[in-house]
Design a protein around this nucleic acid. Structure first.
Lengths: 219, 219
DNA sequence: CTTCATTTATGACTATAGTCAGTTTATAGA
DNA sequence: TCTATAAACTGACTATAGTCATAAATGAAG
């Protein structure tokens, strides 16, 4: 009967800083998810969305083809999973770096231009992303997306309120509705830009005019 | 000089009412196209877009599966081919039946409500249609779509100009830019409605408020 | 350590959009 | 009419997203 069981000390498992609650199972899942997202990001960026197959992603992530769909409902889901964090961060940064003293119209153009800059790094991918953001098929994606939209709407509404408080804005409609109106215009102008119908300069020019109409100031 | 060239008379082939220029080939093509569009309309309406296969459409139109793609680049193209005429007609009718004496805001809400009514007959189909209208993949679809958008923009701009001339509008920005702004708001509100995030009444209420901001009047 | 239930992984498989090499059909010219 | 050329048609085929029955891994309880 093997006498020495010292190595099996029961008490030694408690004080784990990094993952006190999670077992191997959870750790494996997280790691696999990370590998999947990493592989998808790399392949989508390198080859494009249509040119990347789910098989390739699965292989790059070193998992079976069926496993991929335990982590993402669809190929499009994967795209949103990969880039929604970046978009959210881009939006937050854009709002954080606004010049407080500038006219509202300039602030808005600045914010939206920052967002455009992000999308222009890969217009094709951005187009598909925009499509998925506004046309979420499953309910699962709604979470990521609504967080993004809420951040944008809240940021815009905040800019409007602050401009109004400082007497720099004469648009007295409810701020959230104004924010939605502004975003609708940004979205359409962005679509025109990513569709290749306008240049970057034309985008800014048109956007500025559209936003000016909404906040009721001269362009 | 007018000798008898009777039999070989050049003019004798001209008076064909239905198809003076077209041979059997062209007629066959037109007929086939009509069968395809008819079959697609029926199947898409009856079973939905995703539930209809291109094979079923080909079979219903009594053509080979490959032939279908000589007439439409893709399944999505087919959807646009089927419904773009109806959408155009809906838009034209909506503008034609506007009450000339009503306030601009009411006119706009009336026009957009008519368009919503069309889409509400089949929200699922409408969603996919909207997606294809704003995200045309091939260049071929651009023709149908840009005609639709031009009609809408022109109609909106016209309403704005007439209201302005009658002293009923104090939005003095370029009419086309105002039209684009108005449409952007309609589009986003429509998306919310078709996505099931608002009721029909909420759609109208929100739309009215968004449009009011753009044309700078009280809601 | 040994069940045993539950969660997770897998790849062969299915369904279907879209392609293409080969065939048929229409038209123009002799 | 017959023939040659071009246009249109076809369905077997390919590529790939997503499913599902089966298998492996995990952890809890004895």
């Amino acid at each position: 009967m093997a006498g020495q069981r010292k190595a099996q000390n029961v008490a030694s498992d408690a004080p784990d800083l990094t993952a006190p609650r999670v077992g191997r199972r959870e750790r494996n899942k997280q790691e696999k998810l990370a590998r999947i997202v990493g592989a998808a990001r790399r392949l989508f960026s390198e080859r494009g969305f249509a040119e990347t197959t789910t098989q390739q992603i699965a292989e790059a992530a070193d998992i079976g083809t069926g496993t991929l769909f335990l982590y993402a409902r669809s190929k499009e889901d994967l795209l949103v999973m990969v880039f929604s964090d970046e978009m959210l961060e881009t939006a937050r940064t854009a709002f954080a770096s606004v010049d407080d003293a500038a006219p509202l119209l300039d602030q808005l153009v600045q914010v939206f231009s920052s967002m455009l800059a992000y999308h222009e790094r890969d217009p094709d991918l951005a187009r598909i992303l925009l499509k998925e953001v506004m046309f979420p098929d499953g309910v699962g994606r709604a979470a990521d997306i609504s967080e993004l939209l809420e951040v944008i709407f809240a940021g815009l509404a905040d800019l409007v309120v602050r401009a109004r408080d400082a007497g720099r804005c004469h648009q007295d409609a409810p701020p959230l509705l104004v924010a939605e109106n502004l975003f609708a215009n940004y979205y359409m102008d962005l679509l025109g830009r990513l569709g290749g119908q306008t240049t970057s300069a034309q985008f800014v020019s048109r956007l500025r005019q559209h936003l000016a109409i909404t906040i009721n100031v001269p362009a």
